[in-house]
Amino acid sequence: HHHHHGSGALAALHAEGPLAGLPVTRSDARVLIFNEWEERKKSDPWLRLDMSDKAIFRRYPHLR
């Protein structure tokens, strides 16, 4: 159930192989992290948004 927010940013994801479903670039990863943060913020208003490279690598090590 993907609803768009204002920016309408869509992340490019790997379609197949071992990385299927994972973001292709760091900016794609940022979109995913932001979208998930927006969702989680509803139940956790104090949740901090962390889109640093460090956060991205921790989450998606293949982007190193």
Rank of each mutant, 00 (worst) to 15 (best):
1 H>C: 15
1 H>W: 05
5 H>Y: 15
5 H>M: 14
6 G>F: 14
9 A>W: 13
9 A>K: 15
9 A>G: 13
9 A>V: 12
10 L>W: 06
11 A>R: 03
11 A>G: 06
12 A>D: 10
12 A>G: 08
12 A>Y: 10
12 A>S: 13
13 L>P: 02
15 A>P: 11
15 A>Q: 14
16 E>N: 10
16 E>W: 10
17 G>I: 02
18 P>V: 07
19 L>A: 04
20 A>N: 07
20 A>H: 09
21 G>S: 05
22 L>V: 03
23 P>S: 01
23 P>C: 01
25 T>N: 06
25 T>W: 04
25 T>L: 04
26 R>L: 15
26 R>P: 10
26 R>T: 12
27 S>Y: 15
27 S>F: 15
27 S>C: 13
30 R>P: 00
30 R>E: 07
30 R>C: 11
31 V>F: 08
31 V>Q: 10
32 L>E: 03
33 I>C: 03
33 I>R: 01
34 F>K: 07
34 F>V: 06
35 N>Y: 12
35 N>T: 11
36 E>S: 05
37 W>P: 00
37 W>T: 01
38 E>L: 15
38 E>V: 15
38 E>D: 08
38 E>W: 15
39 E>P: 02
39 E>H: 10
39 E>L: 11
40 R>K: 13
40 R>E: 08
40 R>F: 08
40 R>D: 07
40 R>S: 10
41 K>F: 07
43 S>C: 12
43 S>G: 10
44 D>G: 05
45 P>S: 07
45 P>Y: 06
45 P>I: 06
46 W>K: 13
46 W>H: 10
47 L>M: 09
48 R>Q: 12
49 L>M: 05
50 D>K: 04
50 D>T: 03
51 M>K: 02
52 S>A: 03
53 D>A: 07
53 D>E: 09
53 D>L: 15
54 K>I: 10
54 K>Q: 11
55 A>D: 03
55 A>Y: 13
55 A>E: 14
58 R>A: 13
58 R>Y: 10
58 R>D: 12
58 R>L: 13
60 Y>Q: 00
61 P>R: 02
61 P>L: 02
61 P>G: 02
61 P>I: 02
61 P>Y: 02
62 H>K: 00
62 H>N: 01
63 L>A: 00
64 R>D: 08
64 R>Q: 10
64 R>N: 09
